[in-house]
Every structure is written in C-alpha cells, then in structure tokens.
Design a protein around this nucleic acid. Structure first.
Lengths: 154, 154
DNA sequence: GATAATTGCGCAATGG
DNA sequence: CCCATTGCGCAATTAT
C-alpha cells in the first residue's frame, strides 16, 4: 500500500469486456441485488408547473438521453474530486499526527530539563538553609566556612 | 519487479463518449429474458495449451456462472470490509490527533508551571547572593536586609 | 494458482 | 438545478 500504481487502462476495446453505452436496461440480477427500474410517470408537459408535494418518481433515467449522459459525467467528475479531497485530508491528518508526536517529544524533553534544573536549585537551597542554620547555632567563625560539619539529627 | 503501469488518461475533461464499464446485464426487468449469449470456449479440450506470449483474452466473465456470482459476492464482501477498515482507520487517526493535541496542551501547561517555579527560585537565589555580598561588604549591620531589586531574565 | 485485500471508477440516492 | 457525499457493485491489480 505504498505505490499507487497508475490505474493504467487502455482503450475500450482492449478488454473484451468493456461495453460501451447504449444499453437501456436496468435489470435485476438473478440472485443478488440490483437497482430497480421504475415506472414512468409520463412526461411533464406544458409549462411544467404545478408540482404538488406528492410522490413523484423520477423517470428511469433514459440512459440514452443526452441530458442524462451529461449529468452522469458531471457527477463522475464531482465524485472523483470529492474522493481525492477525502484522501488528501486523510493524509494531512496522518501528517498532523506525526507533527504532534514530534512536538510532544520536544515538550517532554523540555519538561525533563526543567525538572532537572529545578531539582538542582532546590537542593542548593536546602544546602544553604542548612548552612544558615549552622551559622546561627555557631556564629563564631567570621567568614569562609563552606565545610560541612554537623552530622547529627536525622 | 513492479512494472509501472501504462499511462492512463484520466483527464478531468470532457470525454466525448464515456466508456461505461461492462454492464452487460442481459436480464430485462419486465420482459424477462434470461438468456445471455455467452460465447465461451467452454471447457478446454485437448491436452495442454500452448499459449506463448500471445494475447490471450479473458473470457467475458460469464455472468450466469455460479462460479462468477460466487466470486463477485465474495469480493463485494471483501470490498466492504476493506472500506470499513479504511474508514475506521481514518477515524482513529483523527482521534489520535485530538488526543495528542490535548496531551500537548497538558505538557505546555506543565512547562509553564515549571518555568515559573524555576524563575522564582532563581530570583530567590540571586537575592541571597546579593545579601551575602552585602554582608561581606558591610558585616556590621544587624539583620535587616533591604529588599533587593533584581531582574533576571532568560 | 487461488483467495483475499486494495484501488479506481461509475451509478444512483441523498444532502446542501 | 448543480455540486458534494456516500454506499454499493464491478473489475483490474496486488498481496498473501
């Protein structure tokens, strides 16, 4: 699922199967399903007005009709477009996931770093606090007393 | 290995005559006629077939064949399954995006918090350092540290 | 080689 | 009315 090979196709006559248009039947298959042809509510003649909210069935879609063919083609185009978009969107979403994952890792790393820094600073603070306490208890020496001595307590 | 397919004209422009897929359902709705002219070589007689690199056309897929119908049905099932999965996957991906977004926000908030904490601690540190310096310079005063001004930055 | 999975495409119904 | 979406089937390809 990685190489969208081109859907190469050829002319209509290379496979013995492709049939061209001009087939005005909507037949139901034998066992399975198939769409159903519908009755024809005649042709809307005249000014084509007066369309009550009744059940109005569409004509069986004259496959030969120029109109029909035209609409079909347009729709096919629209379908193609829509599907393309859909696919594109999916890919974009996938990419978004990747980006977010990356971002996530970045943030996680940053958090780790900050935590570390914080931890160090806190330790320093505690150390200082102890020093101060010591100094308060034994304010004899004037300066330069980084050496830790007291080791009692908990 | 994989040979790139041939160029397939899929231009989104107007095709004069659209080639409809093989939809040669011969069955009629009203006037049922379940007789489809199928020209099938039937069972290959004779021994082995020597079909060298020639053009061998597939048979027009006998639509009436039980075999055919069976395969179609299976394929339809497979198709449905495949599409379902595809759709599901897309949804999952979308959801993943949402989750990651949330997670990111969470992390971002945490970073903000940690940064704040760090900033405070650093300020405190600087303050202390200044106090110490002051004490060293003027060790005569008692214990009245004036609020030091300081502006740390990042 | 057979079967299952994918993929492109067209049709029709339905929703804007 | 036109376009967009969507479910569905067919057939060709590809993967197992």
């Amino acid at each position: 699922m990685s190489r969208p090979s081109q859907p190469k196709l050829t002319t209509a006559d290379n496979h013995g199967v492709s049939v061209i248009q001009s087939q005005a039947h909507a037949a139901a298959a034998s066992s399975s399903l198939q769409q159903v042809p519908q009755l024809v509510p005649a042709t809307p003649a005249g000014g084509g007005k007066a369309l009550p909210p009744s059940k109005m069935k569409k004509q069986p879609a004259d496959k030969d009709s120029e109109e029909y063919r035209l609409r079909r083609e347009r729709n096919n185009l629209a379908v193609k477009k829509s599907r393309m978009r859909s696919k594109q969107k999916a890919m974009d979403t996938q990419q978004r996931v990747n980006e977010l994952k990356e971002e996530n890792e970045r943030l996680e790393a940053k958090i780790k770093l900050l935590s570390k820094e914080l931890s160090v600073l806190k330790d320093l603070f505690l150390e200082h606090a102890h020093n101060l306490a010591d100094n308060a208890q034994a304010p004899a020496s004037d300066a330069s007393s980084p050496a830790v001595k007291n080791a009692s307590g908990q």
